[in-house]
Amino acid sequence: MNKEEKLADLRHFLARYALPANRPAVPLGLPAADAVLDGGLRPGAVHEVFADDWGAGGFAACLAIQASKGKPLFWVRPDYEALEYGALSATGILELGGDPQNLYLLRAPHADDALSAAADILACPHVGAVVLELCGTPRALDLVASRRLALLCEESGVTLFVLREGAGPIPSAAATRWQVRTLSSDPRDDDWGSPCFHARLTRHRQGGLGDFFLTWDSNHGLFHDAAAHSGLVAAAPADRPVGAPRQKRA
């Protein structure tokens, strides 16, 4: 193999990781995070969100609202999710800046149904984003299943957010993996109550990792820096959010 062939090979290999021109990245809005993510979340890929407490799943909701702008957002969850974590509320999604008219909810009987339904939905390129909400680690969710979903995403350009609750990471084909906790609101803020998260990027296929404090701006559908408005710098204890007292895991 001569040098040029090798180069062509490498280019071809790298091309798989380059974003296609017609799929712009989804910027989070926080410069530090977008720098690490090389412009934003990669569309047509799988992103995993591990929620550490009751509110942290909202991070996936915010990301999905951002990624699905103007297009249908499919939310897939097995039945028991609703009993444990509550029903998805369209009014709440509206308050977060989402569009309830574009919200589709699929209540699957079991986790494996949810996985196969997600695969069906991902095959349709006119869908904006899919959230697959799973509690615990269902047996059907293995590396093969996740790779299959990732391939479907790549083909259709639909972004999949796998929201995992009460579970730890397992090997997967995800492009990014986020470990998320909710963060207390800024104590000086009178209009407190916007979603605030401490999101750790613990896995990233195409780049570095990071540790971010984000607050969601429902009006613009973007994240802002939560550390900035509270006047603190990011050099903070690694095990808990800045400005927040020690946390207990829920």
């Binding site: 509550g86 029903a87 509206l94």
Partner: peptide
């Protein structure tokens, strides 16, 4: 195509939870 009316004003945080217990 029914219209949806937001509860919060522009400066407000979300006033309705995104998850409601059944």
């Amino acid at each position: 195509d029914s219209p949806w009316i937001r509860k919060r004003q522009d400066q407000d945080p979300p006033l309705r939870p995104w998850r409601m217990l059944e």
